[in-house]
Write a protein that binds this DNA or RNA. Sequence first.
DNA 1: GCCAACGTTGGC
DNA 2: GCCAACGTTGGC
Length: 151
Amino acid sequence: MSYWLMKSEPDVFGIDDLERVRVEPWEGVRNYQARNMMRDEMQEGDLAFFYHSNCKVPGIVGILRIVRAGYPDDSAWDPEHTYHDPRSTPDNPRWYRVDVGFERKFRDVIPLADLKAAPALSDMPLVRRGNRLSIMPVTEAQWEFILSMAD
DNA sequence: GCCAACGTTGGC
DNA sequence: GCCAACGTTGGC
C-alpha cells in the first residue's frame, strides 16, 4: 500500500464535493508522469492527501482513498467533453484515471506555507520551486509527519 | 491579474 | 533530435 498526494482546484472539485458524492472518477489528468502513476502504480486501498490548489489558502484539506486502480479515462474520447483528446481512443487509450473515495476532512487546512516551513518535508515535490505535478508519491515518513500537523 | 516555471508541440 | 513558440499550472 502506497501514499499519494492529489491536487484539485476547489472551484472545480474540492473536498466538500467529494464528501458529498463519496466516490468520484479522477478524470481529466493530461500529464504523462501523473498518468503513469495512476496507470501503473496506484492500487485500490492506497491513501492520498487531498490538496487544494489555485485558491486563497492552498494546502492539504483531507484524505481520500483509491477505490479503483487505473483504467482508461473515457472522457478523452468524448468529443463533447472538456477533456476531449482525439489522440486517445478506446482501442488505444492514452489517458487513465482512478476512482477515489472520501475518507476524511481535516478540521483546518494545512497551508502550503506550513508544509514549506517543515524541514521534514523539504524533499516533497510539492514544496519544490516550480513543481506542477498534480499527483505525486508521499513517503510513509512524510505521511506520518503531515498527519501529525492535522487537527 | 501577473508571471515564473515547466511540459508539449511542431518546424526544421 | 534540437529548440523556439506556445499553453498551462499555480503561487502570490
